[in-house]
Write a protein that binds this DNA or RNA. Structure first.
Lengths: 215, 215
DNA sequence: TTGACATAGTGACATGGCGTCACCATAATG
DNA sequence: CATTATGGTGACGCCATGTCACTATGTCAA
């Protein structure tokens, strides 16, 4: 065991500074693109010197990796109904898309910042791709299962799941990633229409409009 | 009239240098991500000094803007069948997606570089968004027209066209944007399935497989 | 209490890429 | 032959980055 400065429940100095940096990043990215974020600007709002930054993160992309970890969790939870739920798959699909749209509407600028930053750093790019990859796996599994039940026509689920997931990611990021954000309702309806028509067939679209799912 | 160094048809020094820079960029981006491109590296392969670069482009994003202009044209041509063609819309859709996949497979790394660079520069980002925007307009018009003929069910075409175009862009970029590129056939089939199921209905999917369109 | 030690934080430095500027060379024009 | 504009160059200053030696502070063990 090493010498731990704080033996009891109180959060230590280190944790507080780290959190301050992350909060500064969140505050900044809500209204500015990632490309405008600098270490100087970030540390200006924390009260500690610029070089202290490198004690907590390797670079700005390290901050974004941390942010990805936070957002990731929320998105996984939102997507769960259709991925793992039982019951009417079309209703579950509405629920999942509803959740994804909600999370991405609330976190839009952050998610866009992560996706932007992913283009500028190999490691973050890899993490981002892996993140999307888990959705591919999950969607493929669900499609396969529903195909075996005859709910979805037979086709290779891999490329379709891949494409539909990219559809969600890039549509949501573009729609909600910068101010002014689009109205979420039409986006939700469009995504639901595309997923349902592609997987379960057009006949499911007219009845059970998305308002049916919303409590 | 100013003093023009080349009075007749021969291409001048300036045009040649500019082309050399663009070629250097193409050569580099085929196997390296945009984030690794520098002015020094670019000019090293041209034989002229680094500072000469700024006579032809304002910065690296200026190069990417020029590249966008080139690729844009090819993509417009490829997309034309469904956008402006007459006849069976499902066949035209297959033709368009076929063309898009072909162009994006050939130019993949360049297109990905443009899209990456768009995240790092305001002006290029605007140009890229505008580029995608023209497809939105075109798709909306086509969907409206087919809706009036009863070929596509009635719904607000705006968000659906928006989402489907983002689907194409991000799927094609992710599939073919870096080596090793995916097999184009499954991607083509997945995109065709999604577009056709969403717009014209599932019943068009089984017959007329994509191989029918390929000469 | 004291000495040892780990952790938080700092200022200074070197680096690398960028964009500009004053200046030079060349070649076409009159 | 003088003029003039275009293509090209080296040097400069700038900005953000990442590192490093060093200080300060607080904790633990003897």
């Amino acid at each position: 065991m090493r010498a731990r400065p704080q033996p009891s429940g109180k959060i230590g100095k280190a944790e507080r500074t780290r959190a301050a940096i992350l909060n500064a990043a969140l505050g900044f990215l809500w209204s500015h693109p990632f490309r405008e974020m600098t270490v100087v600007g970030l540390m200006a709002s924390t009260g500690v010197s610029r070089s202290a930054f490198y004690r907590y993160f390797t670079d700005l992309h390290g901050v974004m990796t941390a942010l990805l970890g936070i957002v990731q969790e929320e998105i996984f939870v939102a997507a769960e109904p259709w991925i793992a739920g039982v019951g009417d798959p079309v209703a579950l699909m509405h629920e999942t898309i509803d959740g994804l749209v909600r999370v991405c509407y609330e976190r839009g600028p952050f998610i866009r910042a992560i996706s932007d930053a992913a283009a500028m750093d190999m490691h973050l790019g890899e993490a981002w791709r892996e993140f999307l990859g888990t959705f591919d796996e999950a969607a493929i599994a669900r499609i396969k299962a529903d195909q075996e039940q005859g709910l979805i026509p037979a086709f290779d689920p891999g490329p379709v799941a891949f494409a539909l997931n990219r559809l969600d990611a890039s549509t949501l990021i573009e729609a909600f990633g910068q101010h002014p954000r689009m109205d979420p309702d039409p986006v939700r309806e469009a995504l639901a229409r595309i997923w349902i028509a592609t997987l379960y067939g057009t006949e499911w679209l007219e009845r059970g409009s998305s308002t049916l799912v919303r409590t």
